[in-house]
């Protein structure tokens, strides 16, 4: 117990981010940071390729059945889509700001911005489920052979719902994973892990969060606005 107390008082004087050097297999802290970023960018490339399959399916089925997709976008409420877009853009700003805060050693602001980002992610999911998925699913606007909506006027509308649920569903899964990652950052920020000399994790999760935003920037007009 005494050793732990000693450690914690010591770490109050010398926070983790100051003590942290780099893992022994790297030449320097810079090299470690750059390698982590390149690795993250390579992962983001695979994410973009994952979503490009969905975008391609969207393009092909839209070209085949334009009226089904026009009807489909009218079933969605553009106001909820816009609200979710604003929420995600704002959370992208707060996560970019949290990197700035870590670089400037603004510990309190870092925690606040990470918390706001996480709350935005939760709000996005909440709006998606309570105002979009659940009301639509319950009236039979479902993908493929689960479809049972009685008022559809175009025989290919189940295809629209398949595209809608898979694209937004995979995106929402990414948002959920983002909630977890941001929570992890938030806990670490309270332990004083991030500061001007060491903020790799904030930067990396920030990149992930921006790609989630980037995907939504394309999904939003494709699903809600094009008619």
């Amino acid at each position: 117990m005494t050793t732990m107390d000693a450690q914690s008082s010591e770490s109050k004087q010398q926070p983790y981010w100051k003590k942290y050097t780099h893992q022994p297999h790297w030449r320097s802290k810079e090299q470690e940071f750059d390698a982590a970023k390149i690795g993250m960018w390579l992962f983001l490339v695979t994410e973009v390729l994952l979503f490009s399959g969905l975008f391609c399916a969207y393009a092909v089925f839209r070209l085949l059945y334009p009226d089904a997709f026009a009807n489909g976008s009218h079933y969605l409420d553009w106001r909820w889509g816009t609200l979710n877009t604003v929420i995600l853009l704002f959370s992208s700003y707060t996560v970019a700001t949290s990197i700035h805060n870590a670089q400037m050693n603004q510990q309190i602001r870092l925690r606040i911005n990470l918390a706001i980002t996480m709350l935005c992610a939760i709000a996005f999911i909440a709006i998606k489920f309570t105002l979009e998925y659940i009301p639509k699913w319950s009236v039979g606007k479902r993908p493929g052979s689960w479809f049972s909506y009685p008022w559809a006027s175009e025989p290919h509308e189940p295809i629209w719902w398949s595209i809608y649920y898979s694209a937004t569903g995979i995106h929402a899964t990414h948002v959920l994973i983002g909630v977890g990652l941001l929570g992890w950052l938030l806990i670490r920020s309270f332990k004083g892990h991030f500061g001007p000399k060491h903020y790799t994790a904030v930067e990396i999760v920030g990149l992930y969060w921006h790609i989630v935003d980037l995907i939504w920037i394309f999904l939003f007009p494709l699903l809600y606005l094009i008619h």
Partner: peptide, 17 residues
């Protein structure tokens, strides 16, 4: 819609990322 989305994506990628 796609033109504006591309501009927004560029802003996010160049500055936020």
């Amino acid at each position: 819609a796609m033109g504006i989305a591309v501009v927004k994506a560029l802003l996010v990628a160049l500055f936020f990322m």
